[in-house]
């Protein structure tokens, strides 16, 4: 991972992570304040606006539980970022599979819900990402936004590196159409 999380605040992060691991919530709040924008943006792009708040909370709760395992070998931001991705991928896997079946089921009885407002009119780039199929969106996010390598993405998503490459290209081609119409 080439990673966007910065090690710039590493000394503070390391000290606060150690305090947090010992139960110091004020130290953990400082970690939250420094990293919440990063984690929430990740959640918003991976799962959508609607789920981002809950997913962010889940990620920080998991971080609190796991602080004792953080050794400081990598930057805290990198560790937190990886942990958050795992939390979000696990959550979305179960939810997406269920949601797909529910949607299929609802179509049989009646159409559920209406198209979201964010599909209307002019979309920003993040909204365009959100319209990608789940697999393509996740690979695009992890590769082009988060800086993961295909072999890392393959391990995270349980796919082959070839599939990761194919999904990335699919995502870029779809977004290319958006940019072409936008500019």
């Amino acid at each position: 991972m080439t990673g966007r999380p910065s090690a710039a605040a590493a000394p503070d992060d390391l000290a606060d992570a150690r305090l947090g691991a010992a139960g110091d919530r004020e130290a953990f709040e400082r970690l939250y304040r420094r990293h919440v924008a990063r984690i929430h943006s990740l959640a918003r792009r991976m799962l959508g606006e609607e789920e981002a708040d809950d997913a962010t909370q889940d990620a920080f709760i998991r971080a609190w539980e796991k602080l004792g395992t953080f050794r400081g070998d990598a930057a805290f931001g990198t560790w937190l970022h990886r942990l958050a991705i795992n939390v979000m991928l696990a959550a979305r896997t179960a939810a997406a599979r269920s949601q797909q079946r529910l949607v299929q089921g609802d179509h049989v009885v009646e159409r559920a819900g209406r198209p979201k407002a964010d599909l209307e009119a002019r979309m920003d780039f993040e909204s365009a990402i959100a319209t990608l199929p789940a697999g393509a969106r996740e690979v695009f996010m992890l590769h082009d936004v988060e800086g993961f390598k295909h072999r890392e993405i393959a391990a995270l998503l349980g796919v082959t590196a070839g599939t990761s490459k194919a999904q990335l290209h699919r995502a870029r081609m779809a977004l290319r159409a958006y940019l072409g119409g936008d500019d």
Binding site: E29, R33, H40, T56, V145, L175
Partner: peptide, 21 residues
């Protein structure tokens, strides 16, 4: 495709609308 990659790298992080702490 190069433009898409460049655009992805320009994405900026922002805080949640409400404080989650």
């Amino acid at each position: 495709l190069e433009a898409v990659v460049a655009r992805a790298r320009e994405l900026t992080d922002r805080l949640p609308a409400v404080d989650l702490w």
